[in-house]
Write a protein that binds this DNA or RNA. Structure first.
Lengths: 193, 193
DNA sequence: AAAGAACAATAACATTTGTTTACGTTTTCA
DNA sequence: TGAAAACGTAAACAAATGTTATTGTTCTTT
């Protein structure tokens, strides 16, 4: 059954070398968890104590603004991480919610586990740095998009960052990701066809 | 004169332990550079080959959108870094410009130097990870602000992220950071007093 | 299968933000 | 020091986006 950790093994190997002994050590700490569609995994006020690596399904990370409106920060599709990294690392209360948009299978990474990896893997710290850097780059691109693209342009490029997302999730979540109202998104789409 | 590297020493010590031998090694690789007010340090299309640590002055990081409008991405005040980290690390062409808004003194960090630090400092990789994480958190907060705050709210909180910035730089740069027109910022401010 | 909830589209109207132009002040620099 | 450029404010109008209400469809759940 260790076969099923293949996706995260591939991801690690994308960043650093890891030998068989180290990988066995990693695997011994990993576990699966399943979430049902619409289930809320993390809520505001809690401390995010796990990183989720999505094997199958979709997680949505969002927060709620002063008016009570949900703002979708990120979608985590297959083979990407979902967490509030800040809450996770600093053990502070999170502002975010994480919700499964489909029945979803994840691999769980805990904080203790991560620190063991940093301490015991030859390239542990390096792996952490490279992943943090890549997520930093992703944020950078996201901000660039927010500054330079119209909502419609961002809508049209969503299929690049999130393959097939437009057919996988309800449209009002897309609107909340674009930071516009569902009504306005519907209106913008009308202009296209 | 090694005294003058004090600010970056403090910053490193904020993240990791570094012994005297290691610090001497670091210092031997660091150097100063001066930029004149309005000078452009990095331009689109170039490869960003240095990280700038601002000792005194202000650097502005911006890009230009399809319409030719400048969008200010970030201000680097004293004791913070300025670079296009993505261009720097991957040696790809940058989309950004970096400009000095005042006569500015920086400490220069090159890529070769950084890799030597990663390789030779006990906590080199860890330092890199922690700094990447902190900048990642900063991006996260920035995005949260873009989603949840009105331009006026963001204007009012700029003095927190960037102390005294509102009196240090021309207002149209502030507007471009807020992603609104200078005319509109002027109008919003009128509503306040 | 039926009932209710969730969802998407549409229209009418309100609010926010952008655009253009003008004017007066401050800053820069030759 | 004087001219030119840069800068901030203002007003009028245009475009983009939000709000509310309505309707019909699709999805959930019993």
């Amino acid at each position: 059954m260790s076969q099923e950790f293949g996706s995260i093994y591939e991801l690690i190997r994308h960043y650093v070398e890891i030998d068989d002994v180290e990988w066995e050590y990693c695997k011994s700490m990993l576990s699966f968890k399943q979430f049902k569609k619409k289930e809320i995994i993390l809520s505001k006020g809690e401390i995010c104590s796990e990183i989720y690596f999505v094997v199958k399904g979709i997680l949505r990370i969002y927060f709620v603004d002063q008016n009570g409106d949900e703002k979708t920060f990120h979608f985590s599709l297959e083979n990407t991480f979902a967490t509030d990294y800040q809450s996770f690392l600093k053990e502070i209360h999170t502002d975010f919610y994480i919700q499964a948009l489909e029945n979803t299978t994840v691999i769980i990474i805990t904080n203790e586990m991560l620190n063991m990896l940093y301490a015991n893997l030859k390239n542990g710290e390096r792996l952490g740095r490279l992943i943090a850097e890549d997520y930093f780059f992703m944020m950078n691109e996201k901000i660039k998009g927010l500054y330079t693209q119209t909502p419609l342009q961002r809508y049209n490029s969503m299929n690049v960052a999130y393959p097939r997302i437009l057919t996988r999730v309800p449209q009002h979540y897309i609107a909340s990701y674009l930071n516009i109202t569902p009504v306005h998104l519907s209106r913008l789409k009308r202009g296209i066809e």
